[in-house]
Design a protein around this nucleic acid. Structure first.
Lengths: 146, 146
DNA sequence: GACAGTCTACGACAGTCGTAGTAGAGTCAG
DNA sequence: CTGACTCTACTACGACTGTCGTAGACTGTC
C-alpha cells in the first residue's frame, strides 16, 4: 500500500499547500485568492502547481462543483514540516543546537517558549517510559530512510 | 562595498561548503575526498559546483599550488545557517514554536539543551536591561541586522 | 625536451521549477 | 438554444540543478 514517498515540496508548492491547509479544501480559484496579494501569480500558474502537487500525491481531487474541481491536501501540514525540519537538521550535522542557538540569538525564542518546551519534554518522558539515559539523544535518524 | 547578496545555496552546494568549512581551505580534489564515500560524485561534478560557488561569491581562489587552485569559503557557516533557518521559519509563519515542538517530539532536544538555552537568554536579557514584562519578546533589534 | 598525470575551462544534457498562454469543454442566465 | 464565462488540459520556456565528458594547459620526472 501506501508506498514510501519522500514527497518533496518546493518553496512555492509549500505556499500553495499552506493556503490549502488553511481552507481545508478548495478550488484553484480559492487557493489563488488566499495567496498574499503582493506576488500573487496568475491563475494558470497556481493551476499548474496544483497539478504538480497532484502528481506528487500531495493533494487530491475531492469532488467537482460546477465545472471546477475541489482539492484537498493529502500531505498533512505536520508531516511536511517534519520533513523540512529534518532536512534542515541534516544540513548541519543532525544537531539541534546550532538551530536553537540561532533562534535564541535572534530573539525568536522567549523564555516562556522554553518553559513550555520543558513541560512538553517532561510529559513525554512520562508518556514514553523510554529510559532516558543521561546522554540519550542519538536515536534520531532511524527509519525514514527513503 | 560588499553588496546585499542573498546568496542562495542548493543542497549540494551546501554539502560542498560544509566540506570546505571543515578543512578551512583546499583544492577540488580535497573537497571531493571529504564527501561521504557513498554518493560521492565525479571529480568534475565537484569542480562544476565549486565553479558555480565561485560565481555566487560563496568561495574564492586563495592561491595556486602546483597547477591546482586552493579555494576558501567566503560565506561563513554561520551566515549560511542563518539564512536556512530564516527561510524555514518563514515557511511556517515566522514562529519558532512549531519548530521547537517538532524537535522536542522527535527527541532531538534534551532538557539539558533547554537549560543551556535558558542560560543564554538570561544572559542576553542581562545585556539589554529592559525590564522583562510578562509579554516581552520584541527585543530583536540587536546588532547583526544586515 | 618528451611523457604521463593532474587540473582547469567549457560544453552538454536531462530533470525540476516558476511562470504563463491557448484551445476547447462545461455551465448558467436568458 | 446561445452567448458569455469559467475551468481544465496541455504546451512552452527560460533559469537552475545535478551530473559528467572532453580538450587542452601545466607540472614534474627522466
Amino acid at each position: 500500500m501506501d508506498r514510501k514517498k519522500p514527497i518533496r515540496l518546493t518553496r512555492f508548492e509549500l505556499e500553495i499547500m499552506h493556503a490549502l491547509w488553511e481552507i481545508g479544501s478548495g478550488s484553484v480559484r480559492e487557493i489563488q485568492e488566499r495567496l498574499p496579494e503582493k506576488r500573487r501569480p496568475a491563475y494558470t500558474t497556481v493551476q499548474t502547481i496544483v497539478r504538480r502537487l497532484e502528481d506528487k500525491d500531495a493533494v487530491r481531487r475531492l469532488k467537482k462543483i460546477g465545472n471546477a474541481f475541489i482539492f484537498e491536501p493529502v500531505v498533512t501540514r505536520k508531516s511536511a514540516h517534519h520533513r523540512l525540519i529534518n532536512e534542515l537538521l541534516e544540513s548541519f550535522g543532525g544537531s539541534a543546537r546550532p538551530l536553537m542557538a540561532h533562534l535564541a540569538e535572534t530573539g525568536k525564542l522567549s523564555l516562556e517558549d522554553l518553559k513550555e518546551l520543558e513541560g512538553m519534554l517532561a510529559q513525554q518522558a512520562g508518556d514514553a517510559p523510554r529510559k532516558p539515559g543521561p546522554n540519550q539523544r542519538d536515536h534520531s535518524e532511524n527509519r525514514s530512510r527513503k
